[in-house]
């Protein structure tokens, strides 16, 4: 099994596991109405270990998974908005990874916080059916929740998805 295929398979398992946990535990672990978005968090952390194009693919799969489980009513544009917002935010993370990112949990923390805010802002821009006050309150709490949970998930993702080291011999 090639390394690339193995990493993709592990990421798919992580995303499906996150979606299953989101379906079962989202309400049970809610604090003051705030719930983490586990699929988005795993997609953002996964994008740290892939390039821009692959990350857009990760965002697409995470978006369809989230939208299928969340089942937004059809008269919203919720389904497509969720998918497109995830594609954009994961692409941005993958694009940045090609330039500045290094392997560090603080960067992962910043990525999850910023990525959650960006994804929800994109969603709101595409589908502005929500009252801004409660929406803003909800996404700030969600961002804090995602950031808190992301550190252990980051180490799990790193264990599963880190690129194999290429040794360059001198001389």
């Amino acid at each position: 099994m090639s390394s690339s295929f193995r990493r993709s398979l592990l990421l798919a398992i992580l995303l499906i596991g996150a979606a299953a946990c989101q379906c079962v535990f989202a309400v049970k672990i809610s604090i003051h109405g705030a719930r983490p978005d586990l699929v988005l968090m795993v997609a953002l952390l996964g994008s740290l270990f892939f390039g821009a194009n692959e990350s857009a693919g990760i965002g697409f799969c995470a978006g369809v998974l989230t939208a299928s489980c969340a089942a937004p009513p059809a008269h919203f544009d919720g389904y497509g908005s969720i998918v497109v917002s995830r594609v954009i935010v994961c692409f941005v993370v993958g694009w940045l990874e090609e330039r500045v990112f290094r392997d560090n949990f603080l960067i992962a923390l910043a990525i999850v916080a910023g990525g959650t805010l960006l994804a929800e802002a994109c969603f709101f821009a595409f589908d502005p059916h929500f009252r801004p006050g409660p929406w803003l309150h909800g996404i700030l709490l969600e961002t804090v929740y995602n950031s808190t949970l992301c550190i252990p998930v980051y180490y799990l993702a790193r264990l599963c998805l880190k690129r194999p080291q290429v040794l360059i011999s001198a001389g």
């Binding site: 379906c23 079962v24 309400v27 089942a71 009513p73 969720i82």
Partner: peptide
């Protein structure tokens, strides 16, 4: 119930 309000923006379930 398979999924209960996974997204707080929508009160839906599967």
């Amino acid at each position: 119930v398979i999924a209960l309000r996974p997204d707080p923006k929508f009160d839906t379930m599967i």
